[in-house]
Structure formats: C-alpha cells, structure tokens
Design a protein around this nucleic acid. Structure first.
Lengths: 74, 74
DNA sequence: GTGTGACTAAGAGTCCGTG
DNA sequence: GCACGGACTCTTAGTCACA
C-alpha cells in the first residue's frame, strides 16, 4: 500500500475516533479545511511538518499515521 | 524536538549502522546525493513519499525515521 | 565523502466557491 | 459535514558546480 493511502486511512480513522469533523480537525491542526479533505482522499502529498501537525493534534506518534496499521478488519 | 531534526538524526544513525556513505544511501533510495546530504542536515522539509523511499531503503517502518527514538544515550 | 548556494519545474498549502 | 473545482503564492524536488 502506498504511503498516501496509509495516511489517508489512518487519519480518517483516528479523527473519527475523536468525534471530530474535518473542519474541527483542520482547526485543531492549524490547517485548512479543504486541505484536510484532500489528504483524507489521498489526493495530496504532504510534507512531514504537516503530518507532524496532524499527529500532534491527534495525540499520536507520527508513525501511527504513516505506518501500516493492523486493523481488525479482514 | 522538531520533526526535521528527528528525521535528520534517525536517518544518519540508521544509515551509518548499515555502513553506507551518503552517496551509497542516496543510490539505494533512488535519490540524489546532495539531496540526502540536505536531509541529514535538516535543511529540507521533505514530503512523505521521500521519507517512504528512505524507510524502504533502510528496511525500517516510516515511524522509525520520524518518531523520537529512545537512544541509550542520556 | 560531504556541505552549500543557485537554479527551474512541479507540487504543497491557502482561499474562494459549488452541489 | 464532506467532495470537488479553480486560482493563487510559496516551497519542495531534483540537479548542478564548487568548495
């Protein structure tokens, strides 16, 4: 799986587990609404500083967003 | 610590543990020699696709490059 | 073998909308 | 609340010559 797709899936899962909308999440991370939307769709290739912001906002290490997560799903 | 600095330290440590020169490492990752040099100096703000290449070349998860590593030094 | 400034094309990141 | 588009500025990707 490509890294952009991994990020996409991980950030959506973690965001939803916080009960945040994309807009709320974008605000928390100090990013733009539409950009977070793009990232969740795997349509962008962010820099590591952006990923760091996301990770900090979610309270997880950066690896939790970029590494493949072994979810319960088949 | 900033994420660029974490990347810088981690990639240098991991590269050296492989006994690779920057040149050799750049070749393995499919990147330019001077670009790897810049990254190790924390002079660049790479995208996640670049970091992914580095991680694959080193045979480690991306988190190993971006998360803070608890080295023995203290 | 590595650090550094400079350069161009491409893409990151922001902001305006719409359905 | 989210996907998606266009347009904009500024930075990154990737490379070179030189120290």
């Amino acid at each position: 799986m490509e890294i952009r797709e991994r990020l996409s899936l991980n950030m959506r899962r973690l965001r939803q587990s916080k009960g945040w909308s994309q807009e709320e999440f974008a605000h928390q991370a100090g990013l733009h609404r539409t950009y977070v939307s793009d990232l969740e769709r795997g349509a962008r290739n962010p820099t590591i500083t952006v990923v760091d912001k996301l990770a900090v906002a979610l309270g997880v290490p950066v690896g939790a967003l970029l590494d493949e997560q072994h979810s319960a799903a088949s």
